[in-house]
Design a binder for these strands. Structure first.
Lengths: 340, 340
DNA sequence: CCTGGCACTCGCACGGACAGAGTGCCAGTC
DNA sequence: GACTGGCACTCTGTCCGTGCGAGTGCCAGG
């Protein structure tokens, strides 16, 4: 049996009321607050069907109904009208971003902005190295046998690593190394870099081979292996809004999950262009986050994606509003990056 | 009236029991668990005195006693025998630190280590810029009118900022600028740098004055104004140990405080050499953290201090153990930094 | 100065009663 | 056939009253 329009409308009403009040919603309250055009008895029948289909459930007999994960899913997929941002929100975004000085700044402000607007936990991934290109590589002598390798990417990220050389390297040689690596790698996507680094070693004069191998090793680590994608987090305090009720008893598992960068990256990473992903409760693969939902999207200059951002909150969240905010912020950050 | 030895012993027993059990401790339980050599009635009298002096209190009439902030203070100041680290802890520290690659790595590992060992929230400040010296300044052309300024300090920190130039700068001039700033600033403490930067501008040839002013502005921001001390945080999930009880109802204020870098820096910053600071409950100036205690200390290579680290937990914490761990970790990190 | 004893105070856990919200179902109506 | 009003039923949350136990304060005696 499929759901007719009114039943969907009832589901929508339940979700909206429950999100607003945090309390199981009963048939009587529903007809009072929404213009459904039918009596509470009819709504009760509809609710019975919705429950049978698994979209809502009763915490106990003779309590109101609460949406299930499947209910939220249906709500998000079929019942969500896009909610335009309020002018106040637009202004907040603009104001938040005036006078940014560098990438760190952009990311930090963004994550705070997201947390404030959505009143949830926000996560922003730094522009992913694998999708960036090398702008410049710098070698700075630290001591006779130590060089600091500094990589600057076109997305503004700066990564540094210490290189231990096998033997003292004269100033002139540092020069030469710097020129060579830049010639070969500047402008290249990091994803394409490894074979180029190999070539660099091959083409190197034998007497410098030792140095170059050291450098190449660290380069490869920096470029790929250590795909250590960085990210920023804000708004954990928002988890406590509405008591601990939203997360079945304890925040513990959620806080634990938030400490694992790997988990967070999985949540907001790997996004297709110009889609917004919504993971609701169980859909999430991380056990600790079974009672949470994640709304995430990619951002980047123009149509390309260089990183992800998103928010995490209780399954009982304002999906339309959150989705709209996440999208708007992502677009804004993209524009900001495009300007540099 | 001053407290005789036995009363102090009673206080110690109360603190230790309460920390262990989380429950108000009564006179009878005390004499059973500790060899005080007197009867429970005597202990009751002592407790009455301790209460009058403000070191313990009763949650309600006819409940056991609980230490007050002042009680913990006295305990920490006069009753704490230094607890040596267990071999297991020593091993954990050693093992945690094998194979560190750079400063970021050291800081992240340290903060996790601290959180794991103390089972509390850990904070580690990056080596403070103001106490570091410039090792090298690098200028990398990004476009004709944009330079990336990269500063490397002797503590391993790398800071970068974008410099917008008023007009296109030819390659040679970049060269010249780089030479000049390095000559003037390399090796200098950042704290001493501002006047040197001023001088740099004065000594500059008039035709390059414009460029130098831009550069100097950003330099000053990087060096001082933006004293943006970075830090790392871990172990927030530990706040939920023992329910929410430890923080009088909600974690909210604590989580909020933990999001403010400024607050955290105040907590673990400004330390005198080789002391461990313990702030208990109210002693703390931040309202949100009235129900928390902070144990912090400075670290650095040798006897100098380049940054602070510490942990935050409920006032009801194992002070001797925590103090020992914090000290040990700080010393270890100091040694690690000294090796570089 | 310490101790045993005793009366007293509370908090808390348990259980019954009650009100309120919400449901399911049924018979009646359009 | 779909909707409605009505009714009985179920369950929860809350409020009280009670009893128990832990713990105290105080006092008289060693």
């Amino acid at each position: 049996m499929s759901l007719d329009d009114r039943k969907l409308e009832v589901l929508r009403a339940i979700v909206e009321d429950y999100v607003k009040t945090r309390e199981p919603v009963g048939s009587k309250a529903l007809v009072e607050r929404h213009q459904l055009g039918v009596s509470s008895a009819t709504v009760r029948n509809d609710m019975a069907v919705l429950e049978e289909e698994g979209y809502i459930r009763q915490p106990h007999t003779s309590a109101g109904r609460v949406p299930t994960d499947a209910g939220y899913r249906l709500f998000v997929d079929r019942l969500t009208r896009i909610k335009p941002l309020s002018p106040a929100e637009r202004r907040a975004i603009e104001r938040f971003m005036v006078g940014v000085v560098d990438l760190d700044d952009v990311v930090h402000r963004t994550v705070r902005l997201l947390a404030t607007l959505t009143r949830q936990v926000a996560v922003v991934q730094y522009p992913s190295l694998s999708r960036s290109a090398v702008r410049h590589l710098e070698l700075v002598p630290i001591s006779t046998t130590r060089l600091m390798l500094v990589m600057i990417t076109d997305t503004g990220r700066v990564e540094q690593r210490l290189v231990e050389m096998p033997a003292p390297v004269p100033e002139g040689d540092v020069w030469d190394l710097r020129r060579r690596v830049n010639e070969k790698l500047a402008g290249q996507k990091l994803a394409d870099a490894p074979p180029l680094v190999e070539k660099l070693v091959e083409e190197c004069a034998p007497e410098r081979r030792g140095d170059m191998v050291c450098l190449a090793t660290v380069l490869l680590e920096t470029l790929v292996e250590r795909s250590e994608e960085r990210l920023a987090l804000a708004g954990t305090a928002n988890l406590t809004r509405g008591g601990v009720l939203d997360f079945q008893g304890t925040l513990r598992p959620v806080l634990e999950a938030l400490e694992e960068e790997v988990i967070l990256l999985k949540l907001i990473g790997d996004l297709e262009p110009s889609t917004t992903r919504v993971l609701i409760g169980d859909e999430n693969e991380i056990d600790n986050l079974r009672s949470a939902s994640v709304v995430s999207t990619g951002y980047g200059p123009g149509a390309t994606i260089v990183g992800g951002l998103g928010v995490l909150g209780p399954t009982r969240m304002d999906y339309p509003g959150t989705i709209a905010t996440v999208r708007a912020v992502a677009r804004y950050v993209g524009d900001l990056l495009a300007q540099n």
